[in-house]
Amino acid sequence: MSKKQHSLRDLHPGQSGRIIAIEGTGALKRRLIDMGLTPGCDVFVRKVAPLGDPIEINIRGYELSLRKDDAEKILLEN
Rank of each mutant, 00 (worst) to 15 (best):
L75F: 06
I55C: 03
F44P: 02
V48F: 06
D34Q: 13
D69N: 09
S7N: 13
L37W: 08
P13D: 09
K47N: 10
K3G: 08
F44Q: 12
K68Y: 02
K68P: 01
K4Y: 07
I55D: 06
F44M: 08
G52P: 01
S7W: 11
R31V: 06
R46A: 09
N78D: 12
M35P: 00
H6F: 14
P13G: 04
K4P: 01
A71G: 08
I22L: 13
V45L: 13
L8Q: 15
I57V: 15
P39H: 10
D69A: 05
E72T: 11
D53M: 03
L76R: 11
A27P: 03
I55G: 10
P39Q: 05
G24D: 00
K73N: 14
R46Y: 00
L75W: 11
N78M: 02
Q5V: 12
L75D: 02
G17S: 08
I74A: 01
K47P: 00
K73M: 15
P50E: 04
D10H: 12
P39R: 07
D42M: 09
I33D: 09
R67C: 02
D69L: 01
E77F: 00
E56A: 04
A71T: 07
L37S: 08
L64R: 11
H6R: 11
S16H: 14
D34K: 14
R60I: 00
D42R: 14
S65Y: 02
E56T: 13
G36P: 07
L64E: 11
L51E: 13
A27S: 12
L76Q: 03
G52S: 04
S16C: 09
R31D: 06
A71C: 05
E56Q: 15
V48R: 15
G24S: 03
G52M: 01
L76D: 01
P50N: 09
L51T: 13
I33S: 11
